[in-house]
Write a protein that binds this DNA or RNA. Structure first.
Lengths: 346, 346
DNA sequence: CTGAAAGCGCTTACAG
DNA sequence: CTGAAAGCGCTTACAG
């Protein structure tokens, strides 16, 4: 096996200096057109590629973005939340479209993630993605900030204005989901999902939900809010806990589709008819949503657009351009899990 | 912002040479234990990280693996096959566990993918993943081989013995899926999926299917094999085409879950009862499978294990250790889409 | 056990 | 338009 061609090999064949080769390959107008083309032809012939390590070392930037998936460690290890998988796909595409490479990593496996990437010069910036416990990594964000690391974070808007967050409008999502249920005649609502400041995205969904109730003059019943992380099993258990309380309810707004799907399973096991007795709305529009039984009405987050905006914003940040947090609108996807017009039970 | 600390900064503070710092940070026993610890403490304090570009350039290896997702370009751009998304997740994990980084990329966006990664020294090896048209990239594989690139390919075993392939045992999968249907009394089979050499994985599933029919003394009816790529919509149209032929059939073996889900939709639209009149088995066990209506019986590929084996094998290849192709056994996941004992119709 | 030095393969002022 | 040279931040023989 011949070892890889370097710019020196090309210089030798072309009878020019290595500097000229370097310039020609970057298509510098400084180099005579004919020489440039000759050099490029030789490079192609030798299957030459610029050594990124060398050029990055020299220029001190990597043309690489890092994606850190910070998932709730209580999740089953083998399952990544399908919503994030979808985001991962769109971020991968958007990154490639911008001519950057994408380094992917999971948080749990690297305790020192805040420093691992940019500091080791492998990435110019970081995208943080995850429904983690925000309290947990608040300090890590501080550290990133202190180090002047370029990063964007997916999710709710952040208290600290220096943190650039991009996310879907969770408040609006919670609002329209609930308004839809109200318009169908539902009156007694339960909310399944953590609504504390540990899960700012879920909390915003909850706040939107509460706002819709208030606007409609409906009561907000604390006992019908059951905490749950975003898994099918948490949704299942949250719904069981709700049922156990013996309270009346005719609608469930679940903070995520996985929770909704688990809740539907629990409801059916306990003999409830969905949507006749209990309407259910989820959040995310993961692929499973349309295959649930009944198919799940949900709030769709545009992951395609989200990935693009995330990447674009990070790139702007890296280039020193000004960027501001963005809220991406969500849309209601109506399927049959909320049924049609309903006579209120309470 | 202070610029990043280098080994020289540490050397200065520790009052030793830069060489000693480098050794100490790699925990070399050559360096006096006390000195080593002092240096490591200073490094920690300065939040120092080795510059990977520099060390990679020097050592000529990158501790990075590249994953190339080669998807069928006829797919909807926004959707990645959930099976590959799941593989992506397990590969990401497995790579991190081995202390490597993962670079992710899609084929369509880079015409020159065969050279982009290893040649530019950003990755030590490549994992190729995709239900592409194998004929299409046969030559690209040749090129990879010619360049002595380290790579593993997910999928069917390859004619060229120099290509290391890791995959699930598609033949066995097709066999057990069909045997299961036969055991339930099904006799008139249709196969939905490309069975040509363009899709070696699907073809192996088909061959396993045919073998089971032969063993049971059942006819293999050419007209009931309808080509389809792995999308829900292709499955839908394939099933419609099958129905249009006016042939009798009481079982469908679909080459993938997406095809199966599309086929079920078509069957239901046309008034067929699933599984009463037509039993359906899919392949992959994607998340949607359990939520299909009826829940889909399918062949599960162990993506967790597959990711680990893929990464381990590639790493062995890179280290020059011997590796051989591996076939990962599949398992039958029985749900309700094949129903129970059935009186044959033909 | 430690240091001085070479060199990985580029990019880019500087000089002509 | 082109070349000689410095230098990015490491690792690792080589010499002591």
């Amino acid at each position: 096996m011949a070892s890889k061609a370097t710019s020196i090999d090309i210089a030798y064949r072309a009878g020019v200096s290595q500097s000229t080769v370097s310039r020609a390959l970057r298509n510098s107008p400084l180099v005579n057109l004919e020489t440039r083309q000759r050099i490029q032809a030789i490079a192609k012939e030798l299957n030459y590629k610029v050594d990124k390590n060398a050029s990055n070392l020299r220029t001190q930037n990597s043309h690489t973005l890092a994606l850190l998936l910070c998932e709730d460690p209580t999740n089953d290890d083998s399952l990544i939340n399908p919503f994030f998988l979808s985001m991962l796909g769109s971020i991968t595409r958007a990154t490639a479209q911008q001519g950057y490479d994408l380094l992917v990593s999971f948080q749990q496996l690297s305790s020192d993630w805040h420093a691992d990437y940019e500091d080791s010069n492998k990435a110019d910036g970081i995208i943080l993605l995850g429904y983690g416990d925000y309290m947990d990594y608040e300090q890590k964000l501080e550290k990133l900030l202190a180090q002047n690391t370029h990063f964007v974070i997916w999710g709710a808007e952040h208290n600290n204005k220096s943190v650039l967050s991009i996310g879907c409008d969770n408040h609006q999502g919670g609002l329209i989901a609930t308004e839809h249920l109200i318009s169908l005649g539902r009156r007694a609502f339960a909310f399944l999902g953590d609504a504390s400041s540990h899960s700012p995205e879920f909390r915003d969904r909850y706040l939107g939900h509460v706002k819709a109730l208030r606007c409609a003059g409906l009561p907000v019943v604390q006992e019908r809010q059951i905490s749950a992380i975003s898994t099918e099993s948490a949704g299942y258990h949250a719904a069981l806990a709700l049922i156990d309380k013996g309270l009346n309810f005719d609608a469930i707004f679940a903070a995520s589709d996985l929770i909704a799907v688990g809740a539907i399973r629990a409801l059916k096991e306990k003999g409830y008819l969905v949507p006749e007795q209990v309407a259910v709305v989820g959040y995310d529009d993961i692929p499973v949503a349309s295959f649930a039984n009944p198919p799940l009405t949900t709030i769709k987050q545009n992951t395609q657009l989200a990935g693009e905006i995330l990447v674009e914003s990070l790139l702007k940040l890296i280039r020193g351009q000004s960027v501001s947090p963005q809220l991406i609108p969500t849309t209601l996807v109506v399927r049959s899990s909320c049924g049609i017009d309903h006579t209120p039970i309470a």
